[in-house]
Write a protein that binds this DNA or RNA. Structure first.
Length: 440
RNA sequence: GUGGCCUUAGCUCAAUCGGCAGAGCAUCGGAUUGUGGCUCCGAAGGUUACGGGUUCGAGACCCGUAGGCCACCCCA
């Protein structure tokens, strides 16, 4: 319990009991990424501060107060280097896109990534300084279909992991042509009602008026009367937004237009969206979100290139699943314990285990000299579904034809058969449910 | 950055008025010349978060720090 050797504040250890759920989540994300024809990319966990400052915007919370800075070795030229752990994936991906000339690849580039993000926040339920995100980005596709496609992809992920009550919020915040007019309308509206705004919002009104709508302390009637982004869209943005909505309708994907959804990062244009889970008691209900960022590539030094992306918070997905009592994510493949008698050499045990593993089984071999009863006891308690009991060495060299005892640790029945017949005998069986351990 | 609650064994918690730091669960071993999770016996496990103060004596009272949980802002 000493605090000297504890995980840093806001970080967590993923303990063995949580491993299967995380693996399953990552497998689903990777599988969907491939089915939607995304290609994997991985970028560094830290980048120059300037990349995030320019990309996300100086006035974004992520840059203004949540940047997790890192430096080089003491005494090195880089000691004071301006690096930061990535708070989000998009800026780094766009940087890599430009650095490696990926724009010459044919067609819109479809990329996916999974990994940790870092924000220097005060931790609380569902919010950590290091959290994990699955992210997809499409660079170079201006059309509305891809907007609908990534929203569908995120929705399909939640469905596939078994999460219910997920709702999508949708908005369009315009582009370089119509945003200035909308900003002016907001400045006019809120500027005439300054006495109703928080200090924070007054500051935002000067720097980034859209984010006044983000203010959770904004009086509801004031928010309801505020100019709506969709009423200020230029013709092209309005047509794009309408097309996205129609495509979602046609796919039967439910969403709610949310006029206050402007997102916390400055690079978004046109389509923005977030996913929430209903019924969660705590306040951290945002499961994921994203939007179109048609100006970011140019902002970071490339030629004008439309793009869109979505980030899915895996920690919060798991929390939401736990909230709804879901345990299906924790199932494991059936474990087989390989046991020996007193006269069974370690060599025979290892050889048999190796043979069974080659056959695709998950095998835990017992190398102890304990009594057989104790080995069975132990195998059952670590959750093994099956036990294979080897004969002692007087039966000769262990091989496929060696006759072993296969014991079903759930049913308590056993049979004798050749080692070669074990894989077929246990195929298709489920792992036994883990024994409830109080307090773990 | 702000606020509330909290911190005793791996986990959940006791410890009367300030008087020998304990239990249950979990772990390991034994009872068991060889087939079970039960039972019984035993072992191991502690800087009572850390630092200071009051006191003959502090897990308990006081001060400070750190950490945890939750909430605000914002977000995943």
């Amino acid at each position: 319990m000493t605090d000297r050797l504890a995980a840093p504040r806001g970080t967590r250890d993923l303990l063995p009991d949580e491993g299967p759920a995380w693996s399953r989540l990552e497998r689903i994300a990777a599988g969907l990424s491939e089915r939607y024809a995304f290609e994997r990319i991985d970028t560094p966990l830290f980048e120059p501060v300037e990349l995030f400052a320019r990309g996300l915007g100086e006035s974004s919370d992520a840059v203004e107060k949540e940047m997790f800075r890192v430096s080089g070795a003491r005494g090195s030229d880089e000691e004071r280097a301006e690096w930061a752990l990535r708070p989000e994936p998009t800026a780094g991906i766009v940087r890599a896109y430009l650095e490696h000339g990926l724009q010459v690849r044919p067609g819109p580039l479809r990329l996916w990534m999974i990994g940790p993000m870092f924000r220097y926040d005060r931790p609380q339920a569902g919010r950590y300084r290091q959290f994990s995100q699955w992210d997809v980005e499409v660079i170079g596709d201006p059309g509305p279909m891809v907007d609908a496609e990534v929203i569908e992809l995120a929705g399909r992920f939640y469905a596939e992991v078994g999460l219910r009550n997920v709702v999508a919020h949708l908005n369009s915040i315009g582009d370089a042509a119509c945003r200035p007019g909308y900003r002016a309308a907001l400045v006019g509206y809120f500027g005439a009602r300054l006495e109703h705004l928080t200090d924070d919002s007054r500051r935002r009104l000067a720097v980034n008026p859209l984010r006044v709508l983000d203010d959770k302390l904004l009086e509801p009637e004031l928010a309801a009367g505020a100019p709506r982004a969709v009423d200020h869209l230029c013709d092209r943005c309005r047509a794009h937004f309408r097309a996205v909505c129609e495509l979602l309708d046609r796919q039967g994907i439910a969403y709610a237009i949310d006029h206050r959804l402007v997102r916390g990062l400055d690079y978004y244009t046109r389509t923005t969206f977030e996913f929430f889970v209903a019924g969660r008691e705590g306040q951290q209900q945002a499961l994921g979100g994203g939007g179109r960022y048609d100006g970011l590539v140019e902002l970071l030094g490339g030629s004008p290139t439309p793009a869109i992306g979505v980030g899915i918070g895996l920690d919060r997905t798991l929390l939401a699943l736990a909230d709804q009592g879901d345990t299906s994510l924790t199932t494991r493949s059936a474990l087989l314990a390989l046991l020996g008698r007193e006269g069974t050499s370690l060599g025979a045990r290892l050889a048999a285990a190796s043979w069974l593993r080659d056959a695709g089984l998950a095998v835990r071999a017992d190398g102890s000299e304990r009594r057989l009863g104790r080995q069975i006891d132990s195998a059952a308690r670590i959750g093994a579904r099956w036990a294979v009991i080897l004969p002692d060495d007087s039966a000769g060299e262990v091989g496929e034809r060696t006759v072993v005892v296969l014991r079903d640790l759930v049913a308590g029945e056993q049979q004798e058969l050749r080692l070669a017949d074990v894989p077929a005998a246990v195929s298709g069986t489920a792992q036994q449910p883990p024994r409830a351990v109080p307090g773990v």
